[in-house]
Nucleic acid binder design. Sequence first.
DNA 1: TACTAAATAGGAATAATTCTTATATGAGAA
DNA 2: TTCTCATATAAGAATTATTCCTATTTAGTA
Lengths: 146, 146
Amino acid sequence: MNYSELANVLTQNNLKVTPQRVAVLEALMSLKDHPNADAIKEFVHKNHPNLAVGTIYNILETFCEKKIIRKVKTDRDFMRYDIEMHRHHHLYCEECDYIENYYDEELDKLLQEYFNRKKIPNFNIKDINLQILGNYNDHNPIKKKY
Amino acid sequence: MNYSELANVLTQNNLKVTPQRVAVLEALMSLKDHPNADAIKEFVHKNHPNLAVGTIYNILETFCEKKIIRKVKTDRDFMRYDIEMHRHHHLYCEECDYIENYYDEELDKLLQEYFNRKKIPNFNIKDINLQILGNYNDHNPIKKKY
DNA sequence: TACTAAATAGGAATAATTCTTATATGAGAA
DNA sequence: TTCTCATATAAGAATTATTCCTATTTAGTA
Ligand SMILES: [Mn+2]
Ligand SMILES: [Mn+2]
Ligand SMILES: [Zn+2]
Ligand SMILES: [Zn+2]
């Protein structure tokens, strides 16, 4: 995605186009594995060494409000961010901290049918996310910091 | 659960029985809604006002290692703890920060059959947790701190 | 080009969690 | 029961991700 395509994403969401926002958006798109603020900082500092960390958090919060990205919950003490907004679930690697997107329309249909039939009393379901925990055949127990 | 029953849980897990551990265990069992460290502190301080916060974290970590409890991921900036170790999923209230346990054997069977049939290449599933997001009919948008 | 609301830089503040170390104590041994 | 010592705790400092503050800059508009 080039500069004007990235800028379009911002414009379409009624956001001013700033070099900082474009850089953070680019980072989110380039860093596939649900980066945290620090990983994003590393990425954008290659071209924008003075971009403030507070600004990165501001921008991430703004993107969340506009539903350009969303937060991904982990059991570590930092937040990770996901630019993939199509319906998907997550594979959590227990060896490292890798989180992979898992797309499965058949599963989504199955769950939707199930919960249409089986209501939860007093509760209105808005969304269902699966946390699929396990490990990859070829991953090592090295805790990389994302 | 009385003192000796609580103490038994510790003994069975090869943990020394200390008043602090018993108190934290009791707190975890009494506070139904997946308490965080602060809620546990409040609870135990009623009877043990000098119990150190660092000790609470130590104990929680020990309990996690022994699989007496587990961590619950949220999108807030603190960890919550769950003493229910039977298979269950979670209903996340979007109004407040309530997290309710959701038990559903039929659903678990459905998922198990589904993933027995539909393998994920290169990935071995250990566990599947559903995050069911929504809201209760009778909850108000008050952010209580758990 | 000038105006202005909004965004950013830089650094201080906050808050959950972890770390450090001197002291206390549970549980097995004698 | 008393002794012993590995382990647990108290107290507070340190760490660290995130938020807050505010002077300055800037994007978009006229
Ligand atoms: Mn994702
Ligand atoms: Mn639970
Ligand atoms: Zn991995
Ligand atoms: Zn609620």
